[in-house]
Design a protein around this nucleic acid. Structure first.
Lengths: 292, 292
DNA sequence: AAATCATTTGACTCATTAGTCATTTTGCCT
DNA sequence: AGGCAAAATGACTAATGAGTCAAATGATTT
C-alpha cells in the first residue's frame, strides 16, 4: 500500500485521538510500523505533515459539495439541502479527519495551517452566500452575515454531534433540517420585523477574504476541470447528456472512496471520451484525477 | 495589589494570545514581573494555574446569569433575553478569558479542566432547558435537544464574533435576537411540520450529566446563598423588598468588577442587615462574598 | 558473488520547558 | 545597627520530543 497515505491516515487518527501537540512523530512512526527517520523522508517536518493532511482531505471533503453546486437543473432550495447532505455523507467517511479539524488546536501552531482553515471557512461562506442570493434575491444582502454565521454554526454543531457519534441521523434529514432553519430565519428577516446584528462594516476583513476565496475556488485546477465538463454537459441535449452525467457522477463517487479503483475510473473516462463533444474536457479532468 | 490575581490576569492574557501549551511559565512570570520560583509559590503547577483561572472566572461570568434567573417577576421570554444580555455583558468584560476558553486547547491537556468545561456546558444547557419548558411547556420536550444545541451554537457564534471584535452590537440587542431565533425554531417544531433530529436515546450521556449538573448548581455554596436571599425577598411586600433588591443587585454588580471595593460591599450588606426579616440570609451571603 | 544504488534505521544532538532548591534579598522587630 | 524569618530569585535538573546522519539493510545490476 502507498506508504505516504498510510502515514497520513495514522497521523490523522492520532491527532484526532490525542491532539496535534500531544502526538509525537515517534508515535506516528510506530503506528505505521516504520522508523522515525523513514517518516522524515516523506515529510520534512511535523508542520509539513499536518499541512499535507489538510491538503489531502480538504479537497476530498469539499469537492463533492462543489460538484453538486455545478448542477444547473436543481432548484436552489434542493441544491442547498443536497449540498448539506453530501457534506454530511463526507463527514461520516472521514470522521477522524473531521475530529482532528474540529479540535482546531493545530491552527494555533502554524501560520500556514491557520491560513488553510481560514480558506476552508471562506469556501463554506462563499457557497452559502451564493445559495442565499439564489433563494431570496438581492434583498437578503443586508441580513446575509447574520444568516451566514447562524447557519454555519448550526451546521457545525450537527457535524460535531455526528463525529462524536451522538447523532446518527441520515445526512438527507439533517440537510433538510438545516435548510428549513435557514428558511425560517431568512423569511423572518425579510418580513422586516427584526434587524440584523452584523453588517459589512464589522466584517470588512471577511469580505476581502471571501472575494479572494471566490477567485481561489474557480481556479483550483481539478474543480475547474469539473466545472468545465459540467458546463459542456449542461449545453447538450438531455437524452445525449443523461448517460454522460451518470458516468461523470460515478467518477466523482469513485474518487471519494478511501481506495478508488483505477481501473473503474479508466473505464468510466473511456465512456465519456466516446463522445466527441466532450472529449477535450474529459481528457482534462482525467489528467487531474489520474495523472500519468 | 493582590499578586495572585495579577498572575491569573497575566496568564489569561498570554493563554488567550498564544495558547496554553505555547506559553511557558517563564513568560508568565516575566509579564507579571516576578521570578519563576515565586510563581511556583502561588501555583504548584501549570495545571493548577489553569484550573485556578477557570475557577476564578467561571463563577464571575455565570453568576450574573444565575441571579437574573432568580427573579420571579420577570416573564419567561424577557428572562431568557435578559439572561443572554447579561451573559454578553460579561463576555465584554472578560474578553481575554473568553478568548482563552474558546480556543478550547486547554481541555485536551487535563482531565480536571475538561471536566470543568463539561460542567460549564452542562450549566448553560440546564438553564436553557428551564427557559424552554417555561416558555413552551412540556410539549417542547421532544424537540428540546435540537433547540438546545442550535441555540447554544448561535450564542457561541455571536460570542466568538464579539470576543474577536467583529461584532460590536449591544448585548441587549443580541439577547433579543437570539431569543427571537429560538422562538422561530421552537414554534416551527410545535407546528408539527418538521421532525426533530436528536433524541434522548442519542444523548443518553448528556442527560445524566445535566441531572448531575442540576444538583451541582443548586449546591454551589455562593449561588445557594443568593438563591435563598432572593427567595426571601420575593416573599416580602413589594414596597419593603424594592430597596432591598436594589441593594442586592448592587452587591452583585460590585462583585463582578475587576477590583470590587470591600468597603462598598460592607456598606451594602449593612443596608440589607438593617431588615430583620432577611438578616440571616444576608449574613450567609456576606460570609461567602467577604469571608473573614 | 561482487558491486552499486536506494531505502531504512535508531542512536544522537539540541532546544525547550516544567519544576526544584540553595542562596540572596527584603521587610520587620528589637 | 543587628538579627531573623518570610519572600523572592535564578541557576540547575530532568524529561521530552523535533530533527539529523552515519551505518546497516535490502534490492538490483553486472
Amino acid at each position: 500500500m502507498n506508504k505516504r497515505e498510510a502515514i497520513l491516515e495514522a497521523a490523522v487518527e492520532l491527532f484526532a485521538e490525542k491532539g496535534y501537540s500531544q502526538t509525537s512523530m515517534q508515535e506516528i512512526a510506530d503506528r505505521v510500523g516504520i522508523s522515525k527517520g523513514s517518516l522524515y523522508s516523506f515529510f520534512t517536518s511535523k508542520e509539513d505533515l499536518i499541512i499535507s493532511i489538510y491538503e489531502h482531505y480538504q479537497q476530498l471533503v469539499f469537492e463533492r459539495v462543489f460538484i453538486v453546486g455545478l448542477d444547473r437543473h436543481l432548484p436552489p432550495r434542493e441544491k442547498l439541502e443536497k449540498q448539506f447532505q453530501v457534506q454530511f455523507e463526507g463527514i461520516l467517511e472521514y470522521k477522524a479527519y473531521m475530529k482532528m479539524h474540529m479540535r482546531g488546536e493545530t491552527a494555533a501552531n502554524s501560520q500556514k495551517v491557520s491560513a488553510m482553515e481560514h480558506r476552508m471557512r471562506g469556501r463554506l461562506f462563499s457557497w452559502l452566500q451564493n445559495r442565499l442570493l439564489e433563494l431570496y434575491g438581492e434583498g437578503i444582502s443586508i441580513y446575509k452575515w447574520d444568516l451566514l454565521f447562524m447557519v454555519q454554526s448550526i451546521y457545525r454543531t450537527y457535524m460535531m454531534l455526528m463525529v462524536n457519534g451522538q447523532a446518527n441521523a441520515k445526512p438527507l434529514d439533517i440537510g433538510k433540517h438545516i435548510g428549513r432553519q435557514l428558511d425560517l430565519m431568512a423569511k423572518d428577516f425579510l418580513n422586516g420585523d427584526s434587524k440584523p446584528i452584523l453588517n459589512d462594516e464589522m466584517l470588512r476583513d471577511f469580505i476581502v477574504d471571501m472575494d479572494r476565496e471566490g477567485a481561489f475556488v474557480s481556479f483550483e485546477k481539478r474543480e475547474q476541470a469539473w466545472k468545465v465538463l459540467y458546463e459542456k454537459l449542461n449545453r447538450l441535449e438531455p437524452e445525449q447528456s443523461f448517460p454522460l452525467k451518470e458516468a461523470a457522477n460515478r467518477i466523482s463517487e469513485e474518487t471519494r472512496k478511501a481506495r478508488p479503483e483505477k481501473l473503474v475510473l479508466k473505464g468510466l473516462f473511456a465512456l465519456l471520451k466516446q463522445n466527441n463533444e466532450i472529449i477535450i474536457e474529459a481528457r482534462a479532468l482525467e489528467e487531474e484525477i489520474l495523472p500519468v
